[in-house]
């Protein structure tokens, strides 16, 4: 109790002060609960929060203003309505959404069974799997793109037709690879947190097939982790520009944004704002979906 008193008097100046006070309240210390409200956040916290807010809010507000200035100089929503009325922009938006949807499904189909299998039956592959899934962070996207662009130019015709002729087939598979560092870690964290062996044993001994076990038993239990993997994959697919521009797929959203930006930057800024808000809402809602107290709210890269 002496310790609590000392720290309480010392104020929350040091790291973890707030968390500590929270703990004391929970422990029912003889401190009036209202006391917490009286403690002004220390200056170092306020300073950085204000700096960070201004650092991001100013450019964002500036971008909003920029997007509302129409080509004739008046204010209005012309730049926003052009996103739908401009055929090329709209088509690229649809293509990117299609890529996102297919990639998200592919990520779950590919990663969930693999992670479950390794956790359950082949634990000695864990380190290898970690190493392989981290590779897309070691190999910069531009390098992967240069290899793919060369394949695109040198592959036999049937392969080009099968693989590279359309952004859906040309980009989606590689986006799944690029998403692996996040998707593997998200799903692995989720699978680690449940009692996988018991669940599988129970399900299998009741006669469920592996497919049933995966979709009806494991998937609902790792829902949040899988959603995290899906959201990050969607964010990646909607924003990826290096591969698509090197491989000359001009009809996906980020590349189209750069092209439109050359003639009417207002439209590109408008799309950027919507895209940033869209991904923010995705991740923000995920933070409420996360049931577990810690760890599942933010998906860690490494």
């Amino acid at each position: 109790m002496v310790a609590i008193g000392t720290v309480g008097l010392g104020g929350p100046g040091a790291l973890g002060g707030g968390a500590l006070i929270g703990e004391i309240d929970e422990a029912g210390a003889p401190r009036p609960p209202a006391g917490r409200r009286w403690q002004r956040p220390p200056a170092w916290r306020l300073v950085i929060l204000v700096i960070a807010f201004l650092f991001y809010a100013f450019p964002f507000a500036a971008a909003v203003k920029y997007s509302l200035v129409q080509s004739d100089g008046s204010f209005g929503f012309n730049n926003y309505s052009q996103i739908v009325s401009d055929g090329a922009v709209r088509d690229s938006l649809y293509t990117s959404l299609e890529i996102s949807a297919i990639a998200a499904v592919a990520v779950v189909l590919l990663m969930l069974p693999t992670v479950v299998l390794v956790r359950l039956r082949l634990p000695r592959l864990t380190l290898l799997l970690e190493g392989v899934t981290i590779l897309p962070l070691v190999v910069p996207p531009i390098v992967l793109a240069s290899g793919l662009a060369h394949l695109q130019g040198s592959a036999p015709e049937w392969l080009v037709k099968l693989w590279f002729n359309h952004p859906l087939t040309g980009l989606t598979p590689t986006y799944v690879v690029l998403a692996m560092p996040f998707s593997y870690r998200a799903i692995d964290t989720g699978v680690r947190a449940i009692d996988l062996r018991t669940l599988v044993d129970a399900s299998r001994s009741l006669g469920a097939s592996w497919f049933m076990t995966l979709t009806r038993v494991i998937l609902p239990n790792v829902e949040t982790a899988v959603l995290g993997a899906i959201f990050l994959t969607v964010a990646l697919c909607m924003g990826e520009v290096v591969l698509s521009s090197i491989m000359l797929y001009n009809n996906v959203l980020p590349v189209e944004m750069i092209q439109v930006g050359a003639s009417s930057p207002g439209v590109s800024v408008a799309i950027s704002i919507l895209a940033l808000v869209f991904v923010f809402v995705l991740l923000f809602s995920l933070s409420f979906l996360a049931r577990r107290r810690r760890g599942s709210t933010s998906v860690r890269v490494i």
Binding site: P59, L236, G239, M257, V269, S272, F280, S287
Partner: peptide
Amino acid sequence: ASASGVLAYFGGVALAFMLIAAYGRAPGGV
């Protein structure tokens, strides 16, 4: 946490255009 996720993983092109709108050359950059 959510804003960090957006900017760290998604940023890219959208961030670039936001900054062009804010810090671009004078008649343009707000």
